[in-house]
């Protein structure tokens, strides 16, 4: 897979593997869907604002699900809200990732009641769980960095998308 070593072929040329290039570009331009559900959304906004500044990592909040790569489930997911979340998730183009932010999104949290979904992983495939009630912006940043690490480990996801081979899972 890929080229044995990276070397320059004169000025302006770099050889690398397609996986590394694709994963690097995906991991460094994670655009989250602007979607807050409860108090976790306040911490999510704080993480996006000047003090913690997600923009410096290429993480820009997008107001359209068509532009988004990752959805942060930031807060309590009620059964009535679930159809909306599923619509937004299905509108996102592939590849797409899900971060369950906080105790409620991860497990239902303190809301062990009839109206609340006991963890978004009952409905969507979750990539990263961020614990906390709510997590501090540092916690969310760490979760996003974990997601970037996870993306960097993907193999042949681009090839599979254009019909060349399958995704290689190296667990």
């Amino acid at each position: 897979m890929g080229v044995e070593q990276t070397k320059t072929l004169g000025n302006g040329f770099v050889t690398t593997s397609l996986d590394k290039l694709v994963n690097w570009s995906r991991a460094k331009s994670l655009w989250p869907m602007t979607f807050g559900l409860a108090c976790c959304a306040i911490e999510m906004m704080a993480a996006g604002a000047a003090r913690f500044d997600l923009d410096r990592m290429g993480i820009l909040f997008r107001a359209s699900s068509r532009h988004a790569d990752v959805i942060l489930i930031a807060g309590t997911v009620t059964k009535k809200m679930m159809p909306v979340i599923r619509t937004v998730y299905e509108q996102m183009p592939e590849p797409k990732y899900v971060i369950a932010m906080g105790a409620c999104a991860s497990s239902g949290g303190i809301f062990d009641t009839y109206s609340v979904i006991q963890g978004i992983d009952e409905e969507l495939p979750v990539d990263v769980y961020v614990p906390g009630c709510p997590p501090r912006p540092e916690g969310l940043l760490y979760g996003l960095m974990k997601l970037q690490e996870k993306i960097m480990k993907e193999r042949n996801s681009f090839g599979a998308a254009i019909g060349v081979g399958e995704v290689v899972n190296e667990a």
Partner: peptide, 25 residues
């Protein structure tokens, strides 16, 4: 307040608080 297809009325005192499909707490 509840979804259109909801069964039951949850503020009744005999409604299981965690929902009808869960073991009672």
């Amino acid at each position: 307040l509840l979804p259109e297809d909801w069964q039951g009325h949850p503020l009744r005192k005999d409604y299981p608080v965690q929902g009808p499909d869960r073991e009672p707490y």
